[in-house]
Simulated scan of single mutants.
Amino acid sequence: MGIQWFPGHMHVTKKAITERVKDIDVVIELLDARLPGSSANPMLAQLTGKRPKLKVLNKQDLADPERTQKWLDWYNSKPDTKAIALDAGETAPTQRLIKACRELAPNRSGMDKPLRVMICGVPNVGKSTLLNTMVGKKAAKTGDEAGITRIEQRINLASDFYLFDTPGMLWPKIIVEKSGYHLAASGAVGRNAYDEEEVALELISSIKGHYHRELAARYKLEDEHNIPTRHDDELLTEIARKRGAVMSGGRVNLQKAAEIVLNDFRSGTIGRVTLETPKKFETWLAEAQAAEAELRRQRAEKNKKRREAEPDFDE
């Protein structure tokens, strides 16, 4: 099943978005630039329908610039969609966002037809930090724990531009297993919903091929060129030894090593890393959808056989 996290307050957020979207002209979805496919909420796409969408690849300063451009090109090729990249700490992002939204809804302007925009995103994607930068004051709570924001609020970015903020939200079933691990690695999943060592191993698996130089430099790993073919647990063990995560008797503390790797990824200390490309993500999604379809088929067949085996009491 992989990693799943959809606590009760997210059900409330879903209902709030369902009601709010009826009056919305443009939907901004804030994505993590290091995992732009995995941090895109498929349930949000269903809830918002064909409304114009602005995809904002946030934390671009932590992501691989070449892969960020690939994702921008991919999203900008979609109908009724624009994509831009931002840093959460960018000094003046407001005008860029307003301009992009107005281009998506050119018929909405002036006090008689104000542009109504909703901003959404997975937990811990940097939305609250971005909003605080945009309004020049602390309008939203921030933190490194998933699920900080719990209420909707309206922010007026211009006299005819209303921005509705929503709490961070995942979706009930993450069918792409890689996405669950990537979301957990980014901090979008509550800490009680995953094993840190398991997530760290999956993170190493995702970055050791394309970013083996960054791994070697950060943790002073030996035999740099063979890193892509080494086992993930072997690499985590070496990282533990290199970073002093060693217990009595010389035993390595893999839990401590996992925390180090996850914290380094979240802070960008490993380097500018992007875990997925559009082509890779499309492959993962297609495989997951095929597996889900097969599972539904098997369940339907099982239910059919059970009904056929039940006695007919009308005879």
Results as ranks from 00 to 15, higher is better:
residue 132 N to E: 12
residue 134 M to P: 02
residue 144 D to G: 02
residue 144 D to I: 00
residue 124 N to D: 14
residue 145 E to S: 07
residue 136 G to L: 06
residue 140 A to E: 09
residue 151 I to K: 13
residue 133 T to F: 00
residue 135 V to A: 13
residue 130 L to R: 07
residue 137 K to E: 14
residue 126 G to L: 13
residue 142 T to F: 00
residue 139 A to D: 04
residue 138 K to P: 02
residue 124 N to C: 06
residue 151 I to L: 08
residue 136 G to E: 06
residue 148 I to K: 10
residue 138 K to F: 00
residue 145 E to K: 13
residue 124 N to Q: 14
residue 147 G to V: 02
residue 154 R to D: 15
residue 154 R to Y: 04
residue 148 I to A: 05
residue 155 I to Q: 15
residue 147 G to R: 05
residue 131 L to W: 04
residue 126 G to E: 12
residue 138 K to V: 06
residue 138 K to M: 08
residue 137 K to G: 07
residue 127 K to W: 04
residue 134 M to R: 05
residue 128 S to H: 07
residue 133 T to A: 14
residue 151 I to T: 12
residue 129 T to N: 08
residue 150 R to G: 06
residue 149 T to R: 08
residue 136 G to S: 07
residue 128 S to K: 11
residue 134 M to F: 05
residue 132 N to C: 08
residue 152 E to P: 10
residue 124 N to A: 14
residue 126 G to H: 10
residue 124 N to T: 06
residue 139 A to M: 11
residue 149 T to C: 09
residue 141 K to Q: 13
residue 135 V to M: 13
residue 132 N to T: 05
residue 137 K to Q: 14
residue 151 I to P: 00
residue 140 A to N: 09
residue 133 T to L: 04
residue 155 I to E: 15
residue 128 S to Y: 09
residue 136 G to M: 05
residue 145 E to T: 07
residue 139 A to F: 03
residue 132 N to A: 09
residue 149 T to A: 11
residue 134 M to I: 14
residue 127 K to P: 08
residue 149 T to V: 03
residue 124 N to K: 12
residue 126 G to S: 13
residue 153 Q to S: 15
residue 140 A to V: 02
residue 137 K to V: 00
residue 155 I to V: 15
residue 128 S to E: 12
residue 145 E to G: 03
residue 143 G to H: 04
residue 148 I to H: 01
residue 146 A to S: 13
residue 127 K to Q: 13
residue 151 I to Y: 09
residue 143 G to S: 03
residue 126 G to V: 10
residue 144 D to Y: 00
residue 155 I to G: 08
residue 141 K to G: 08
residue 149 T to K: 08
residue 152 E to G: 01
residue 136 G to N: 07
residue 130 L to S: 11
residue 127 K to T: 01
residue 129 T to P: 05
residue 151 I to D: 15
residue 154 R to M: 14
residue 150 R to M: 11
residue 144 D to Q: 09
residue 143 G to D: 05
residue 126 G to M: 14
residue 134 M to C: 08
residue 141 K to I: 01
residue 154 R to I: 12
residue 128 S to I: 06
residue 149 T to I: 07
residue 130 L to K: 13
residue 137 K to M: 10
residue 134 M to G: 02
residue 146 A to W: 01
residue 127 K to C: 10
residue 152 E to Y: 04
residue 137 K to T: 03
residue 127 K to G: 09
residue 132 N to Q: 11
residue 135 V to G: 03
residue 154 R to T: 10
residue 147 G to T: 02
residue 130 L to P: 07
residue 137 K to A: 12
residue 124 N to F: 02
residue 128 S to D: 10
residue 140 A to Y: 01
residue 132 N to G: 08
residue 135 V to F: 03
